[in-house]
């Protein structure tokens, strides 16, 4: 189910390490970039490319929170609610996101655009409260800024 380009990238990733297994996490991320998440068939394909047992790939894929073993929306929101963000109003931002998106943490909007997740400290406490949407980080967040990030972006597309 992976494109030839992704398969080629994964083979090349393996060559960067003295032991091919080290390329497993980068390979899973490369595959996920293409598919959005890592269904079992894709895990099996990565296993075959790296010549690893499929159960070993599943064991690793299921351990890390940013390898998605269930479908996610087009963009994943990682909202930090850890200490410095908590002290700076992360709970208010969480409630605002829940209300505007109509979902709870761990859920995906019915239109498949967003998945809301609670993140642990994103190491950006100087921008608390903060979140990552896709691969971009935003903060310090206010409800108004959240709306601009999520909904004005949407209008532009």
């Amino acid at each position: 189910m992976l494109s030839e380009a992704a398969r080629e990238d994964i083979r090349r990733l393996a060559s960067r390490y003295p032991v091919a297994r080290s390329a497993l996490i980068p390979a899973l991320l490369r595959a996920q970039e293409e598919l959005g998440w890592m269904p079992p068939e894709a895990q099996a394909e990565v296993a075959e490319l790296l010549d690893l047992p499929v159960e070993l790939v599943a064991e690793v894929a299921s351990f890390y929170s940013l390898i998605f073993t269930e479908p996610v929306g087009e963009r994943v929101i990682q909202l930090c609610t850890n200490i410095s963000c908590l002290l700076n109003g992360a709970e208010e931002i969480r409630r605002h996101l829940e209300e505007r998106l109509g979902i709870r943490p761990g859920q995906t909007t019915p239109d498949g655009r967003y998945t809301l997740r609670i993140a642990e400290c994103l190491a950006a406490c100087d921008q608390a409260p903060c979140m990552i949407v896709g691969t971009e980080r935003y903060g310090p967040l206010t409800p108004e800024l959240v709306d601009r990030i999520l909904f004005e972006n949407e209008g532009r597309r």
């Binding site: 390490y17 996490i25 980068p26 351990f63 890390y64 390898i67």
Partner: peptide, 8 residues
């Protein structure tokens, strides 16, 4: 070699 983690 730059190596990414995956959330842990």
């Amino acid at each position: 070699v730059l190596h990414p983690g995956a959330g842990a």
